[in-house]
């Protein structure tokens, strides 16, 4: 890895890790969302240093352009900054507050799962021991060919899933039309 890539890698890694830590420690949900944006851009930079431009661009298009905006909309439409005082009409907390037993249990279980997965992945890459040498050579053509040959089943299943999501969204978004009013 030459020095240029090293600099880009360091910057992206700091952005990704720093962003992720800020997300975890941010008090304000919207701020956490913005930090998540930085973290995702950092991850895109990491993909770029590995030579996987397509994955990096997909990261930008899907996560920065789509998921973060979706998260922002979701946060905005469910309460905004005074989220801690929102109670439903039955006097229950409509959003689980951070820091009670339930969230701690959820967090610990998620962390253990993630560590287990990461250990598996790291074990594979350490035993292969040629990660730094073999740069990812995944161009668009290779990904495309792999998608419609080796992974055709996963491709088709996910396309059906996405179609289902689209139809569902269209049905949810339809206005309720009573018989006497039109449009």
């Amino acid at each position: 890895m030459n020095m240029f890539l090293m600099i880009i890698f360091t910057l992206s890694a700091f952005l990704a890790v720093g962003g992720a830590l800020s997300v975890a420690f941010a008090k304000n949900l919207i701020h956490a969302c913005v930090y998540l944006l930085f973290s995702l851009i950092g991850v895109a930079g990491l993909y770029l240093t590995l030579g996987a431009e397509f994955v990096a661009a997909t990261q930008l298009v899907v996560y920065v352009g789509g998921v973060v905006v979706l998260l922002l909309f979701a946060i905005m439409l469910t309460g905004g900054s005074n989220l801690h005082h929102v109670t439903s009409r039955f006097g229950l907390e409509s959003t689980p507050l951070m820091g009670n037993l339930r969230t701690y249990i959820m967090g610990i279980v998620t962390a253990l799962l993630l560590i287990a997965v990461l250990c598996n992945v790291l074990q594979g890459s350490i035993s292969a021991s040629a990660v730094v040498e073999s740069k990812f050579s995944s161009t668009v053509e290779q990904i495309g060919v792999k998608l419609v040959t080796d992974h055709i089943l996963a491709f088709e299943i996910s396309s059906v899933l996405l179609l289902g999501a689209l139809v569902g969204a269209a049905i949810i978004a339809r206005p309720y039309r009573s018989s006497e009013t039109e449009n």
Binding site: A56, L60, V69
Partner: peptide
């Protein structure tokens, strides 16, 4: 001359939408 040039451009310009949204918020 990225080999995903136009795709990268779509991703980069989508940051503008986030900026506008956050500006409004």
């Amino acid at each position: 001359n990225l080999n995903v040039g136009i795709f990268y451009l779509l991703g980069a310009t989508s940051v503008v939408g986030v900026g506008i949204f956050l500006g409004g918020y």
